[in-house]
Simulated scan of single mutants.
Amino acid sequence: MLRFDPFGNVEAMTRSLLSDDGTRRSPRFMPMDLYKVEDHYVVDADLPGIDPGSIDISVDNGTLSISAQRTARSDEGVQWLASERFSGQFRRELTLGEGIDRDNITAVYDNGVLSVIIPLAEKAKPRRIEISHTAKTASSQAIES
Rank of each mutant, 00 (worst) to 15 (best):
E122Y: 11
E98Y: 07
F86N: 11
Y109R: 03
Q69D: 07
G77W: 03
A121H: 08
L2V: 14
I118Y: 01
V43S: 04
L34V: 14
H133G: 14
F7Y: 12
D21M: 04
N111M: 09
D33H: 09
K125D: 00
L47C: 08
I55S: 06
S65V: 11
T14C: 01
D103Y: 04
S145M: 07
D110C: 01
Q79S: 10
N104Q: 06
D110E: 15
A138S: 09
G77Y: 11
D39S: 14
K136T: 11
E93G: 01
A72F: 02
S145I: 12
L17F: 13
G88N: 08
S87V: 09
S115E: 12
E11C: 00
L34R: 05
T95G: 03
G49W: 10
S140F: 02
T137Y: 04
L18F: 09
L114P: 04
I66Q: 03
S26A: 13
G62W: 11
G99P: 05
L94H: 13
A135C: 00
I117K: 13
P52T: 07
T63C: 00
Y35T: 02
Y109L: 10
A68G: 11
D103H: 09
D39K: 11
M30P: 02
R28Y: 08
V43R: 04
D110R: 13
I131K: 13
D103I: 02
R92E: 15
A82R: 09
G22Y: 09
V78S: 04
N61W: 00
P52H: 06
K125Y: 02
F4I: 07
D75V: 03
R24S: 10
L2A: 08
R91H: 07
A107S: 15
T137L: 14
L47T: 08
T137W: 02
E93R: 15
I129S: 06
V10W: 07
R24V: 12
Y35S: 06
E11I: 15
V59C: 04
E38N: 13
E130C: 00
M30E: 07
K123P: 00
A12T: 15
R102K: 15
G8T: 12
F90N: 06
A142Q: 13
R92Y: 04
I131T: 14
S16G: 01
T63D: 06
D20L: 08
M13H: 01
D21S: 12
A68I: 11
S115F: 01
V43E: 06
L94M: 10
W80P: 00
K136H: 05
S139Q: 12
A45N: 10
S58A: 15
A82D: 10
E11M: 08
V113G: 02
G8R: 12
A138G: 10
R25W: 09
F29W: 09
V116W: 03
V10E: 09
R127E: 05
N111D: 15
L64Q: 07
S58M: 05
R92P: 00
A12H: 07
G49D: 09
Q79I: 10
Q79G: 04
F86C: 05
I66C: 02
R24N: 12
D44L: 05
R128K: 12
T63V: 15
Y109E: 08
R91W: 04
T95P: 00
L17C: 02
I100L: 05
D44N: 12
V113T: 15
G99V: 08
G8E: 14
S54P: 03
Q141A: 14
D75Q: 05
G99C: 08
A45W: 10
